[in-house]
């Protein structure tokens, strides 16, 4: 990161932190269950940006070998895709989670005729 205009890892991490903060704020402020789910998707995307950016810019080769000899990194060949593979599974998990969550929301809606999470107060103490 020599200059501000040159785009580096720091920019990606800052972006992901901003999106994370937006996601957390969404989760905390929304009363609509689907709104909360949207906030969760934001957090997951922030994580995805982190994973891909770190993988592409900082750890393109396997860490065990690459970190020590960064000069010869290109020669080591074997690309490491840990972060990107994680991202693929993250997308799968997000889809799975959304499916279960929406089924539960629908079920809740059928029983309560609303998806206002503040209506979920039959049980207390």
């Amino acid at each position: 990161m020599n200059s501000f205009l040159q785009i580096g890892l720091g920019h990606f991490v800052a972006l992901s932190l901003l999106v994370l903060a937006a996601g957390v704020a969404t989760v905390l402020t929304k009363r609509n269950a689907i709104g909360i789910l949207i906030g969760v998707e934001l957090i997951l995307n922030a994580a995805g940006i982190n994973l891909v950016a770190f993988n592409a810019l900082a750890w393109p080769t396997s860490a065990e070998a690459g970190a020590a000899v960064s000069a010869a990194a290109g020669a080591l060949g074997q690309p490491a895709l840990d972060g990107m593979v994680f991202t693929i599974f993250l997308i799968v998990l997000a889809a799975a989670e959304a499916a279960v969550a929406l089924a539960i929301f629908l079920n809740f809606y059928n029983n309560f005729n609303s998806i206002d999470v503040e209506k979920a107060n039959a049980m207390r103490g």
């Binding site: 580096g8 890892l9 770190f54 810019l57 900082a58």
Partner: peptide, 8 residues
């Protein structure tokens, strides 16, 4: 401290 960027 962020890790150093490797892209040559």
């Amino acid at each position: 401290q962020l890790p150093a960027e490797i892209s040559s």
